[in-house]
Design a protein around this nucleic acid. Sequence first.
DNA 1: CCAAAAGTGTTAATCATACACCCATGA
DNA 2: TCATGGGTGTATGATTAACACTTTTGG
Lengths: 249, 249
Amino acid sequence: MTHPRGTTVPPSAATLPVTVDVVALTVRDASLQVLLVTRLLEPFRGALALPGGFVLPDETLDDAARRELAEETGVAPTGHLEQLRTYGPLGRDPRGPVVSVAHLLLAPADALRLPPGGPAAGGDAEAVGWYPVARVGGSGLDLAFDHADVLRDGVERARAKLEYSALATAFCGREFTVAELRAVYEAVWGVTLDPRNFHRKVTGTPGFLVETGRTTSGGAGRPAALYRLAPDADPGAVVLNPPVMRPGA
Amino acid sequence: MTHPRGTTVPPSAATLPVTVDVVALTVRDASLQVLLVTRLLEPFRGALALPGGFVLPDETLDDAARRELAEETGVAPTGHLEQLRTYGPLGRDPRGPVVSVAHLLLAPADALRLPPGGPAAGGDAEAVGWYPVARVGGSGLDLAFDHADVLRDGVERARAKLEYSALATAFCGREFTVAELRAVYEAVWGVTLDPRNFHRKVTGTPGFLVETGRTTSGGAGRPAALYRLAPDADPGAVVLNPPVMRPGA
DNA sequence: CCAAAAGTGTTAATCATACACCCATGA
DNA sequence: TCATGGGTGTATGATTAACACTTTTGG
């Protein structure tokens, strides 16, 4: 940013309210779900919205996203956080111009321990819960502000990045089986994948999975080998070559 | 964005200066070049920087980017404009916290008619000119603020999107030959491509090019057919399937 | 032994690469 | 007719998709 006509940073005429919104996605019950809060205040009181809040001048955008998420869920979020895009300042909030920096969090379902009671819980805090992405927009699950757009962009980003990055592992625990990883791809893409070709594909892609040597036990069928992402790797930064391909697209 | 603890939009404690920066790229002389201005004011007086400026409360982010570019170059920019990512508010400007929404513009070299005199021109306005991306960072071409990071992110985005979108056409005029299009890929990726396979690839990819029926004349060799992007198509939105693949990656 | 899930082998079709070759123009 | 670049044909190796088959556990 250049400041051709000013010598101080905040000429107050040029400042705007800046918020972060978080599209927090997880895979639960074989479906892609998003974390939503029920608004207690106007505007859109009673409607569902993405968690978020104001950015403080002394924190980074990522820190603001993590802080807001921690305030809503009571737990510091684990998983993969990345910036999605920025919306505004017009046509977003009936009260006036607001710039909002949307973030995308991909996390295992148990990484965000929600307040007890589930989506319908009341109390003095905003009710927070997981909602299947496929159902948002219908059956009374309309979102406040422009959050339907933000959610759509976030889901689209997640779907695209599964192909060429190791992001799918962000939905799993530290160790996982190939079948669990496949369930992530199937839930996010809404497809079914051939288990045998998928297995060969992901285990054969360099830089993706490392065997831990351990196996599962107890379930039906042959025990599965446990894998993890290459240590110290950022799942969003690992470039899969060749990519895991999405059928049909 | 939710506002759990306020009923007015801008509680002034939570507002920040918001700017737009633009990574304007073009292909000139077989190289990828970026539009830079020479700063006339502190901080970083005399250094090169990306064009940009403050976002007004009554304009969209894209409008702000277009307006700033028009103010710097004197011409409303044509070409493809998209949002890149948002930086800040910490560690960017020595004067204090600033949020900057970076944009990416891909345009033909003649779409931005620069003030006469070229990169070294003086005068009372900031000097503006095209600089080869490969040379920025060396030979006295250091960028102000965190603009080196922004430029790197913009170039990376452009390189990635050439593969699976029709964005390369944004660097060309309204009508272009396959060889001109290939020159764009070669300049942006820094590779050489087989002209024959490239020709088959791009002409055979559905939804990419449409023949105009016209041909070039005057140059050496056989005249080339002129193509254009499918009418009314946003080059950034066209999904190429199969993609034009970058060798080696 | 049977069911169930994990994991391997094999094959046919598809796609990228390399490059031989032909086409259409200016000089 | 030659040089120059535009454009097509074709063979080869790599990769995917489909699916038969083997392995390893629990009941």
